[in-house]
Structure formats: structure tokens, C-alpha cells
Design a protein around this nucleic acid. Structure first.
Lengths: 236, 236
DNA sequence: TCATTGCTGTGACCGTGGTCACACTGCCCC
DNA sequence: GGGGCAGTGTGACCACGGTCACAGCAATGA
């Protein structure tokens, strides 16, 4: 872990990308590296916030948890994204909890330095606005899905996104590994593990996908797409 | 409708409050007044956006609509709030639709002028950041409720919020009128009109509230509070 | 006055989402 | 090899959320 790594990590962040080498180096000098092991808790909803975290590598899930233990993932941040900038910006506490989905490396940037930078550099401020706008759109579509779509549609969308993002086109179809457990998928799409299992099976039965071990092969992308787009009550 | 009214309306907006009289007047000179009648559509999800709307009076609901006709309200904006600043800020289209809940007066501010102002005045930019942060928190709690709470809890919370915001303490309890139809309440809390009706009845049966016509009397605030706080599976 | 309209209340019904229990399958590690 | 351990698959069951149909009620306006 060198200072150069930190600079590189910061540069990947949308709202630090506008900074020049000197500014980045200065910023990096204020950062503290934080190693996270899989499943480690970064912070809990309601905690006060001292600064923001830049994801250098790995993946951090931000989530809400019910007393029953059931959780709803709000967003997953990977390299080049930040976690916790919201409470830094509005002075409140963390609106949700966060934990590492895999071993991860973060940079902690104290809020003092971050806010100072915002005030100094209006380009940064605008980039932050764009980031927040993006986050809002994402949340709005999440609300839409949870309120107006069925579990099978949310799962279909999940699979489609994975297929487009990390799928390999083979003669059999679009193949990709299902990295996460059904439990994790459930938390992302807003249901329970059992239903993920059942709905995956249903897709297999209908010939939309094929599963080998934990590898998914999309046989019929059009059908999957249709499943993902449909509304409640409009299933076939 | 005078220019003074416009200035007053703008001043109520969090991110214009920092402007001085001259700036406000200048801004107002670029605004166009738009009268909306109840149920009139302001814009539809996906429409391109030419500027933002300042609510001077009345109420605008921002919502997502399913093909079935069922809708989910994201937020309701009243005097002093704005609608559509998001697409102005990130250059995208409207992420949701908007319509008037009652007769309303809006000011339309073309995006050119608004963006120029942002660039000129960093105070405005920071106020916008605070507004977006607030919106995000609101959406996060909406996601939490939709995913992790039952309809009865969401309704209880709705009633509690109303009681705190506009309730009159009387010898019988906390009284307030239920302005909206069950249909509207349903769209706000994410369900259908029938369930709102049934759940209201259940609260009455349990002695938590009393209903006279469309007036609600909260008899037992503690119970209502408990209903509103509980999680799925933790009901009595 | 009466017809129309829009909203509420409600009984009957049903499907999806969710719970629970348990067997099974890899897998890691002693 | 065999005993945990974590995750998956699945049958049975249940309840909440949602649908549908219809009756009642209040407000409106011709």
C-alpha cells in the first residue's frame, strides 16, 4: 500500500477526478487506509459519521436491517465509489448500515478535509451533485420495483443485469457465475432466500435459463427480458 | 399574481433563501407562472426537462405508475419546495411523473437561468446538496418501509405523522381531518385502497383510533406509535 | 326531486410472498 | 475418512396483500 495507490484510488472517484496531481496527493496524505475482511461491519445505521470512505478494492453493501434479521440492500459500492458521503454533506448520522461483501480496502477521508475541498473547489461540488442525483434515480427505481413489481420480475432483472455486465457469449447462451448466495441475492432484490431458490427453479423449468452448479446460462434472453420488464399481474 | 409574489415564493425555497433581494428579483423576472388544477398532469416519467418548478401554493405529487394503473407516490411537494430540479442538475429526463393533488400555483424557472445561478453562487450549490441529501434519506426510509414493514405499520406511521403535523389536542384525543381519499393514501403508503379501508377499520376495532366521517381521533397514541414502529412479524 | 358520480365499506376469494422444517450436497479441516 | 458447517432445494403450510363485485352513502347538478 503506497501513497501512489491512494492517489490512484481517489482519481477513480467521480468527484475527485477533476483534481490535479498535487491536490490529489494532498488529499491522499489525509487519508487513512482501512482493511476490511468479508462480512465485517463498517458502520451501523444511526452512527455518527466522521468522514467518508473511498472504496479502493472489494465491495461494500449499504443496507437497512429489520429486527427480524431480514435485510434490504440499498446499493453496493465498488472501486471508484464512495460510502458515507451523505452524512458528511448534511451533518446527520448514517442513514443505513454498511458491511464488506468481500475482503476490501478503503480509504477513510476525515470530513474536515473533504468539506474544505468542496468549499474550495466548486467543480467538486458539482460532481457531488451529479453523484447524488444518480443515487436518487437509483433509489427511485428501487422503490418502483419493490412497490410495483413481483419478486420474479426483480429476480429476472437481476439476472439480466448480471448477464449484460459479466456474461460470456457461448454457443449455449450467455454464461456467468452466480457469485453471491441466494441469501445475498434475496437481500438485494427484496425477498427471502427460499423465494430466490424457487424462482430460479421456475426459470429453469420454463427453459429461460439453465443452471450448472452456481453457473447460470441464459438460454432465452428475450424471455428473460420480458420477465424483467413486465408489471404485476401481467405475467404469462 | 404580482412579481412580489414570485419573489416571496422563491425566497421560501431552501436553496434560494441565501440570495439577496436583487438576485431574487432577477430570478423572478425569468420565471413563468403556471396554474395547475387538481389532478392535472405536470409531466410524465421519461419526458425531457426544460427547467424546474417552484411550488408557490398547493401540492404536487411525484409518483411512479405501473401499467396496471397502480401508482406509488415518491414524495409530495408543497409551498417552498421544488419539483424537477434533479433532471435539470444531471441533464437526464424526469425520473417519475408529477401531478397536482389540488389546485396549485407553480413558478417555472428555465434550466439555463438556474444552472447559471448555481455556477455563480456556490452557496446555492451547497444548499442544493443539502436538499438532495434530504431527498436521499427520505427515499432510503421509503425503501425500508416498503421492503421490511407491513401495510398496517405504514398506515400507522402515516396517521401518526398526520397527528403530529396537523392534529388538534382535544379532550377526546388528537383529532385531524383525513383530507385525502383512501386511494391517495394507498398510493402514498404503497398498497391499494381496499387495504387502507380494512386497516383503518382494524385500528378502530382495537380502540386505537375513532373515525367520524372523515375525521380521525387518535385515542391511544402510544398504541399507534407502537404499530408504527414495529417490524414484520412483531405485531400483537 | 331524482339521476349521476365518486368514494367507502365489506364479504368472498385467491395467489404471492413468506415461514418452517428437514433432507441433501459440497466443502473444509481435524 | 468422517464430522461439522454453510448453503441449497423443497414440501407443507399460512397469512398478508390484493382482486372483484356489489351495496351503501354523500355530494352535485339538471
Amino acid at each position: 500500500m503506497t501513497a501512489l495507490d491512494s492517489v490512484a484510488a481517489l482519481r477513480r472517484v467521480l468527484f475527485f477526478a477533476v483534481l490535479d496531481e498535487n491536490e490529489l496527493r494532498n488529499l491522499a496524505s489525509h487519508c487513512v487506509v482501512r482493511q476490511m475482511t468479508k462480512d465485517e461491519l463498517l458502520f451501523t445505521e444511526g452512527d455518527p459519521c466522521q468522514g467518508l470512505f473511498v472504496v479502493q478494492s472489494g465491495a461494500i453493501k449499504v443496507f437497512k436491517m429489520a429486527e427480524t434479521g431480514r435485510e434490504q440492500v440499498l446499493v453496493i459500492e465498488r472501486a471508484g465509489s464512495t460510502v458515507g458521503e451523505l452524512p458528511v454533506l448534511d451533518g446527520g448520522n448514517f442513514p443505513a448500515s454498511a458491511a464488506a461483501l468481500e475482503d476490501s480496502t478503503l480509504l477513510f477521508l476525515p470530513k474536515r478535509e473533504f468539506l474544505e475541498l468542496c468549499r474550495r473547489n466548486s467543480e467538486v461540488a458539482f460532481a457531488i451533485i451529479r453523484t447524488l442525483a444518480w443515487r436518487f434515480r437509483y433509489m427511485a427505481s428501487l422503490v418502483e420495483e419493490l412497490s410495483l413489481k413481483e419478486v420474479s420480475h426483480r429476480l429476472a432483472r437481476f439476472l439480466r443485469d448480471r448477464a449484460l455486465a459479466s456474461g460470456n457469449r457461448t454457443k449455449r447462451g450467455i454464461e456467468f457465475p452466480l457469485e453471491e448466495t441466494n441469501q445475498q441475492i434475496a437481500a438485494e432484490i427484496g425477498t427471502v432466500r427460499d423465494l430466490v431458490s424457487r424462482n430460479l427453479r421456475r426459470f429453469v423449468d420454463r427453459g429461460i435459463i439453465k443452471m450448472e452448479r452456481r453457473k447460470v446460462i441464459v438460454l432465452n434472453m428475450a424471455d428473460l427480458e420480458e420477465q424483467a420488464t413486465g408489471t404485476k399481474r401481467a405475467s404469462g
